[in-house]
Design a protein around this nucleic acid. Sequence first.
DNA 1: ATGCAGTCCTGTAAGC
DNA 2: TGCTTACAGGACTGCA
Length: 274
Amino acid sequence: MPELPEVETVVRDLRPLLVGRTIAGVEVGERKLRRPWNATWGPTLVGRTFTLARRRGKWIVLELDDDRRMVVHLGMTGQFTVADAMSERPDHLHLCFALQGGDAELRYRDSRRFGSIELFPDEATVVDYLGAKLGPEPFDIPTKPFAAALQGSSRNLKALLLDQSVVAGVGNIYADEALFAAKLHPTTRGCDLTSRQVNKLREAISTVILKAVASRGSTIRDYVGGSGLRGEYQHELTAYGRTGEACVRCGAVITVLRVAGRSSHFCPVCQKAQ
DNA sequence: ATGCAGTCCTGTAAGC
DNA sequence: TGCTTACAGGACTGCA
């Protein structure tokens, strides 16, 4: 389940392997992804050189020398890697970009096909597309708008944290981790938070995400970085996936509850409902 | 406008 | 042992 730390790791891995490299060919799989690949994009991309690799929320943006942008979302099981061109092709491979020189290729693999790769003509269209749906990055979230979004809503905290327009890049794992760190119950309504609690949550989101980035994200099932390496933060999780285990703070048993349609893991003692 | 449920998709695991 | 069923969840649609 790639969230911000996993996507950031992919981008950091891909950057040195991709920037300055030219696309020599594009192979498209039979089965369509969440958003279909336009047949004109392949020929357009041949001969183009990657100039920059960056991330916004859970989205990857690869810039090309003709100003176009390849915009990628990994969905749940997406893997975006640079691999040895001679290595065996894995199953569920949907897109393959041969790199000039013939030694390596950029591969998009996605068993559940929740992900997507699209080509945008320029920066302005990418800003329109992503800007419309994404809120601030989790680091240094502007205090006032964040407090207004939370305290002005009757939605529960879990739903608010999963909403990409509130904070970009948080998914189910890091929402649970941030709520645990801030000692807040997932069903607590935004409007029931004190300003002190809002601030604590704001800092918890930033801290948790930064620590996960430092550990190259969490590999629960499918996730791998841009060079195929697994993450390590799964060993540091305090709430997510720890149902029945002891709370690292108080020793109580971690509970799971369905909140906002997602499994939500929390400590019933440290994180009191309010 | 707002918030929620349903949808997509398939590998894995639990249940009978 | 082999089949069926439930579950995982990011983004999006449609409904109340």
